[in-house]
Every structure is written in structure tokens, then in C-alpha cells.
Design a binder for these strands. Structure first.
Lengths: 119, 119
DNA sequence: TCCTTAGTTCAAAAGTTATTGAACAATTGG
DNA sequence: CCAATTGTTCAATAACTTTTGAACTAAGGA
């Protein structure tokens, strides 16, 4: 039981940008980046919407090639496809994550700390 | 007669990403980047759609803060807001333009040369 | 086996975005 | 003034995206 993912060379720039142009998904990506190395399952994101709605957004991210979802038991372990994205679009993910880190308009996850403005 | 533009600090990351997540607009931005310094008017982009449709897409880019449109006579001179975007989201525009430069899926403008694959 | 947990799928509704054509405005040149 | 050029606005439609709830599957534990 594996889920469909695009190959690295099939990842499309407009699709990736479009998928990241949604506050919920950008919040997911920011959170994944902040927990890099720790695989997360969908229920980590329930702050952002209903189970069904997250399933939808996570599928969009996966189908765009932004995340990878590995089936483990009844869970999906979700990770950022950082290396693949860096290969395909050098610097893009880093600059998006850096910009998102500062963005107080994006929804927070699990008491996440908003990046502080320079005192 | 000036057109509304967001201030630099009003430029929103998800809105910018969403606006760039459209092949027509990404093609416009790529072309503007390739002609940096040369202000272009809307009719340069008629390859990409009807006059009305371009007016729509150019308004989206302007309202998102990606481009600036200056009214000169009956023309709008359109430029990329590169410095403002670099200030707000360092590295983002560069990585998007670099990635778009290579993208053969994006529509071309006026016999634009597709970036060649490495021989 | 039965229950729970984790997540998907489906269909419907709501909302948003893209595209079109016709009509409009403003400037420029004759 | 008249016509051409440049681009906008409006209303309609088409197409897509997001959100929801109910029903479902699959694995794991008691």
C-alpha cells in the first residue's frame, strides 16, 4: 500500500507555487520544516481543519511533490521532500520557509511559537 | 491617475505564491525578469491571452505586489517589484525566476527562446 | 472477534478564479 | 473634432477549489 507521488523531474513549478499559495498548506509546510527529521502523521494538523479537509490538503501537497507520505500501519508518516525540491528548484523551499517563518497571518499548529518581531 | 499597489510590508506570502501559481502569470513574471529595466506595456503579453484576460492577470500581479504599473499616456508601464520583493521575501523571487527560466511547460512570449537543456 | 484509531472516498454545496465579449474611458495624432 | 490606440469595467459563464458529513477501509489491541 503505497501512495502515488510524482518523481522529482515531474514536479511542476506552477503546481508547487499554487499548492503553497494556500495558508493552510503553507502552515503545514512551515510546521514540517520546523520538525524536520520527525515524521508526522495527519492528526498533528487537526488544528488547521477537519480530518477530511486535512486529507484533502495533504493529498494536494503530496501530489504536487512537496511532501512524501509513507504508510505505516494506520498512519501516514509525512515528510517534506526537501532534497527533491532543492534539486528541482534550488533555493525555492528555503526562501519560502524563511518567509513563512515570519508570517503571523498563517495559522499556528499546537501552540507553535509565532516568530518574534525584532525588539 | 495612479493604480492601487500594496506597500512593501503589505505584501502577503500566500497571496504572492498563489498569484505565481498560474502559468500565464508566471510567464509574465519570467518575461519581465528577462527584460529587467525595460518597462513593458500590456500589449507585449497578448500572446498569452485576450486583452481582457491580460488586464485581469496583470491586475492580480499588481494587487499582490509582484509588479508595479505606472500610467503613462494610454499605456501602463509594467515592472517587477524586485527590490520590494527581495526585502520582504529574500531570495524568493530569484529562485522562482531561476526555476521558471528552465520551464518548457510555461507559455512563451514573442518568440522567446526556451532555455536550452545542457548539451 | 469486536472495538478503536487513522485516514480515505464520495457526493454535495459553497466559494473562488479564469475567460469571454461588449461597452466604456482616456490619451494621442491627424 | 474625429479616429485610432491602450487598456479598464461589467456581467455572464465556465471551470476549478475548498469544505462538509456520512460511509467506508485497514490495522492494531483487548
Amino acid at each position: 500500500m503505497t501512495l502515488p507521488h510524482p518523481n522529482t523531474d515531474q514536479i511542476s513549478l506552477p503546481i508547487v507555487l499554487g499548492v503553497l499559495g494556500d495558508p493552510t498548506r503553507l502552515a503545514i509546510v512551515r510546521y514540517l520544516a520546523s520538525k524536520e527529521g520527525v515524521p508526522l502523521n495527519c492528526s498533528q494538523f487537526l488544528d488547521l481543519g477537519s480530518k477530511t479537509n486535512l486529507s484533502y490538503h495533504l493529498a494536494k501537497l503530496r501530489e504536487a511533490g512537496v511532501t512524501r507520505a509513507e504508510v505505516v500501519g494506520t498512519s501516514r508518516l509525512i515528510t517534506l521532500r526537501r532534497a527533491d525540491l532543492d534539486t528541482r528548484f534550488p533555493g525555492l523551499l528555503d526562501s519560502v520557509i524563511a518567509a513563512a517563518g515570519d508570517d503571523a497571518e498563517l495559522p499556528m499548529i499546537g501552540g507553535q511559537e509565532p516568530a518574534k518581531a525584532h525588539a
